[in-house]
Write a protein that binds this DNA or RNA. Structure first.
Length: 729
DNA sequence: AGCACGCCGACT
DNA sequence: GTCGGCGTGCTC
């Protein structure tokens, strides 16, 4: 007699589903997408039902589902299908994939309609007498609360082994207090949207997408330089989507960079808007998720993870700055939110917009092969494009990292009362500290990498593992002095510029100077308020910010990336060039970009002078085609690491043999050591898989990883598979 | 992942 | 003698 079997995805790193019998005390079967608690080994776990099937009498005796948590699916059929596709495409354990679509508060068995959270916070510091009366359990609880300044749910406290009684006694003495659960994200009532005045080019873009959207699925690259008004195009399309009673999903690279965008959507679209990103407290995240799921939110704005938000009435997806690397998750479940968004739109039969001034080469290739439509917004809505000057550094006398040409131009712009941005993507003072006597350089003890000297902290820091040490006065190798600083970082630029421009108000904006909470916002406001003249920035300052008074951008070192091992370095360089150049000359001021290089004849540098990105991209695509690199071939990287070299090498060798046998058509390379082989004392190796077709790659990957799980050598290493890797490192 | 089982070293 | 190190295997 065939048994009814329930296949459940559980949050364990196993590429399989687990079969259970229906719950004993119920005659209704839990449908796919509902959460169930099941016995698992010695414990029990909450998972999601994937499917129900009739099975021949199973080989082993199955256990039964313990509890069904949802009377109707928490995740609808369409989303379940997308998650299933993603698990297969990225060859990742299905249970871990599904976790990404559930807010943390729903990953346990808690019901959507459950009582609200009871959040607790530590109260202000007590006097010493009170502190003396604190018992050890109380101290532990207080310490735990201290780590959760925004408050933490009572149930979570209990789950971490704290007693409610301890909490109550602390409450009686005023050491802790209840914090009201955050109100559900208010969904503002519909207001009459502001009419948006569109330029003819913008209107044409809107009509193109709208006309195509009527036919269902389509991918539209909205390609326009910074300042060409892509946002207005998105807004109008979002507005129309909402007016038609459907939902729009707007993905952005980083929520911190887009307060203005959120504000404009809020004012420009008369509909409930929710924001979803990983920094949201669990309660707020749940509330936002819930209003997307029940349809009360017309617009969801969010980062990478928001691509998994339930949208019962999805009508449009927008991926802003689609080339941005932050759409690719870099650990664990290594999905690309941009690619998932395209798949999701295809499944739902709706249009998806990819917006960028500097599209990924993959996207441009899809346009050129006719898979994606392109809508160009060629003109800047206001202002004119910056003039580009290439400065040949060969043989030139330098002031630190600066040529006279760049310094003179800076002097002129500063005298005219304009702002100047000096761009260098390297923080710290100097990337290498070298002995003048023997040539030895200071390297990290745990990584195969030189240490960067940081002047402010007076420390040598490793940019790979984060460790640091105080530099000695003499060489560790030969004992001689002095040690020389080789190369320039942003701190050193600042030093040079303070000498050159003693009167200028100089602001350095990099990860070090913005570490303090709110520091970036403060600096950003200082810049827009005109309280700084000379800005020194890493890529932090290159992205999407609007500085109306900025007239000159100096690219200090264009040469890094021209000859990198990473074949994508050129693409990144081109994107960065154009993004950072876009900071110059908006609104009132005509801008100039000065590029310092030792390779003025390099095709990438030459292409900067024209329609910068279009030409550079064409050069790069031709290189990729000639070398049979992505997007002309399809890649995956299997990485492994351990403290003992032979282990990753052994595992990858076995993995290679397995794949050679199962899929002889694929081209394999490796195992190779990663470019920085040793990182935090772990030795990292990799195996590159290359396929002539998407299909060939994909058919092989999921079965391969299932076989890898069974290898004994796999248990001895940390390993991961990266499909469509963005860095082969 | 998390947990149990099992087989070897240094400690109350 | 046993506590505990982590290598190994398994979870329906």
């Amino acid at each position: 007699m065939p048994a009814t079997v329930i296949a459940v995805a559980l949050p364990v790193p196993v590429r399989a589903l687990f079969d259970y019998l229906p719950p004993e005390d119920s005659d209704t079967l839990p449908q796919p997408g509902t959460r169930v608690t099941v016995p698992f080994g010695t414990r029990s776990r909450v998972g999601v039902v994937i499917r129900i099937h009739a099975s021949p009498p199973p080989a082993r005796r199955l256990k039964a589902v313990t509890t069904v948590h949802d009377s109707e699916p928490m995740l609808d059929a369409r989303l379940m299908k997308l998650l299933g596709w993603a698990a297969e495409y990225y060859a990742h354990p299905p249970g871990e994939v599904i976790q990404h679509a559930l807010p943390a508060l729903l990953r346990g068995g808690r019901s959507l309609a459950d009582e609200p959270e009871r959040l607790w916070q530590a109260s202000a510091e007590p006097d010493t007498a009170a502190r003396r009366r604190t018992g050890s359990r109380q101290a532990a609880l207080l310490e735990f609360l201290g780590r959760h300044p925004d408050g933490i749910d009572e149930r979570l406290l209990v789950r971490h082994g704290h007693a409610v009684a301890t909490l109550r006694s602390l409450e009686r003495r005023g050491r802790v207090h209840r914090r009201d659960a955050p109100p559900p994200v208010p969904v503002p009532p519909a207001i009459a949207p502001l009419a948006v005045a569109l330029s003819p080019a913008q209107r044409a873009a809107v009509e193109t997408v709208a006309a195509g959207g009527a036919n269902g699925f389509g991918v539209y690259l909205v390609n326009g330089v910074t300042g060409s008004g892509k946002t207005e195009v998105y807004l109008e399309l979002v507005r129309r989507t909402v007016a038609a009673g459907r939902q729009a999903l707007l993905l952005v690279p980083e929520i911190g960079l887009t307060p203005q965008l959120i504000d404009r959507v809020r004012r420009g679209v008369g509909a409930g808007i929710v924001v979803m990103h990983s920094g949201l407290p669990d309660g707020e995240r749940l509330a936002a998720w819930r209003s997307a799921r029940d349809g009360s939110a017309g617009v969801v704005i969010g980062t990478r993870s928001a691509v998994w938000t339930p949208l019962p009435h999805a009508g449009l997806i927008v991926v802003d700055e689609e080339h941005d690397l932050s759409y690719k998750q870099r650990e664990g479940f290594r999905y690309s939110a941009r690619d998932v968004a395209v798949k999701r739109a295809r499944d739902a039969g709706i249009p998806v917009i990819l917006g960028s001034a500097t599209p990924a080469l993959e996207t441009l290739h899809n346009v050129q092969s006719g898979r994606y439509a392109q809508v160009r917004l060629a003109d800047r809505a206001q202002g004119s494009p910056p003039a580009v000057r290439i400065v040949d550094l060969r043989g030139r006398h330098m002031h630190g990292a600066f040529s006279d040409t760049l310094l003179d131009a800076m002097r002129r712009e500063l005298a005219a009362g304009h702002q100047v941005l000096v761009f260098l993507n390297r923080r710290g003072y100097s990337p290498v500290l070298m002995c003048h006597a023997c040539g030895a350089i200071e390297t990290c003890l745990r990584c195969d990498a030189p240490l960067t000297f940081h002047h402010q902290q007076q420390k040598l820091l490793c940019h790979h593992c984060g460790s640091g040490r105080r530099p000695g006065a003499e060489c560790r190798n030969c004992g001689a002095a002095p040690l020389l600083h080789v190369g320039h970082g942003t701190e050193r630029l600042e030093e040079t510029l303070r000498q050159q421009f003693p009167a200028a108000r100089i602001l350095r904006v990099d990860r070090d100077s913005t570490r303090a909470r709110g520091a970036f916002d403060r600096m950003y406001r200082a810049i827009t308020a005109g309280d700084a003249d000379l800005l020194i920035g890493t890529q932090m300052l290159a992205k999407g910010h609007d500085f109306p008074n900025l007239s000159l951008v100096g690219i200090v070192d264009a040469d890094r990336g021209l000859f990198s091992n990473d074949f994508r370095a050129g693409e990144r360089l081109a994107q960065l060039f154009v993004q950072v150049s876009g900071r110059a000359g908006r609104d009132r001021t005509a801008g100039t970009v000065i590029v310092q290089t030792h390779f003025p004849q390099h095709p990438l540098i030459r292409a900067l002078k024209g329609d910068a990105y279009g030409e550079m991209a064409q050069v790069l695509l031709e290189e990729r085609r000639a070398a049979q690199l992505p997007p002309f071939t399809y890649w995956a990287v299997l990485r492994a690491e351990d403290y003992r070299v032979e282990r990753p090498r052994q595992f990858l060798t076995e993995a290679r043999r397995l794949l050679e046998r199962a899929a002889p058509g694929l081209e394999l390379s490796g195992p190779h050591p990663a470019p920085v082989e040793r990182r935090a004392d772990r030795l990292r190796w990799q195996l590159i898989v290359q396929a002539a077709s998407r299909n060939a790659l994909n058919r092989a990957m999921a079965p391969w990883t299932r076989a890898l799980e069974a290898l004994k050598s796999a248990r001895a290493v940390r390993w991961s598979l990266d499909i469509d890797p963005l860095e082969v490192l």
